[in-house]
């Protein structure tokens, strides 16, 4: 049989790469389990740390920040793992040998990271609510929490994908990712934590904080994703 090659569209290649990540995850459930258990353990630690807090108001004001602490540490764990499979058997080189646009690799990896992180959040955020917020009354528009979660996850997974591509090639990669990741996502974290706290507390004028913060976080996402997308070619080819 003679082999005919017809270069697939960028979108098809994106789907193929994304499907590969999902197939792997369905088989091993490695990312979801490790991130999920880790998140649960962080919740337990919070429980110990907050053991002496009795005043409902205190809990309301810190819970937004705590939720984001949980997400940052969980995503660090996930991002660290996300390129381990690609490096383990040199698969990344195999992918680079294929005629495809380098940014497709970025988009596919960022998408799979977003999906895994969202899946973990779907489990942990209700748990967080169950453990810490059932005793107090969060603001009425509590459900708006979904928006900062989504914006924050997209930004973290986006820039995190670029950074983990860098750190997977360094010595001491776990530490290195944290050292780069935390300061660089600080603005996003600050904005998302502000928005989340505003709606959880639900005080008068909460929306005056919520929407500007959300908008700024979204702006960060757009700028940083574009930047990562442009710089990814250099990083992956190095």
């Amino acid at each position: 049989m003679s082999v005919v090659l017809k270069t697939p569209s960028t979108f098809q290649q994106y789907k193929t790469l994304l499907r590969k990540d999902l197939e792997q995850e369905f088989r091993t459930k490695e990312m979801i389990t490790s991130m999920g258990i880790y998140a649960l353990l962080v919740l337990v630690v919070f429980g110990a740390a907050l053991g002496q807090t009795t005043q409902a108001l205190d809990l309301l004001q810190v819970s937004g920040g705590l939720l984001w602490t949980l997400i940052v540490f969980t995503s660090l764990l996930g991002l660290n793992r996300s390129f381990n499979h690609e490096k383990e058997q040199g698969c990344l080189e195999g992918i680079l040998l294929v005629p495809l646009d380098r940014s497709v690799i970025f988009l596919a990896k960022a998408t799979s990271n977003i999906l895994f992180l969202l899946a973990v959040e779907v489990i942990t955020v209700p748990l967080f609510y169950f453990f810490f917020l059932t005793a107090v009354t969060p603001g009425e528009s509590f459900w708006l929490l979904v928006l900062p979660l989504l914006v924050g996850t997209i930004g973290m997974a986006g820039i995190g994908t670029l950074l983990s591509t860098i750190t997977v090639n360094t010595r001491g990669k776990d530490v290195m990712l944290a050292v780069l990741f935390v300061p660089i996502i600080f603005p996003l974290l600050f904005a998302c934590a502000s928005a989340t706290t505003a709606i959880i507390v639900g005080a008068e004028g909460a929306m005056d904080v919520f929407y500007p913060a959300l908008l700024l976080a979204a702006g960060y996402d757009v700028i940083m994703l574009l930047l990562s997308w442009v710089l990814y070619d250099f990083v992956i080819s190095a």
Binding site: I166, P187, L188, V209, L216, G219, L231, F234, A238
Partner: peptide, 26 residues
């Protein structure tokens, strides 16, 4: 290459950081 990429990200990130920490009413 990696350090060049990181310093470009830093240059973009720092003004955003100032803007975000300043513009969010608190």
């Amino acid at each position: 290459i990696y350090s060049a990429v990181v310093s470009i990200i830093a240059l973009v990130d720092v003004p955003i950081c100032l803007m975000i920490t300043r513009m969010i009413p608190s």
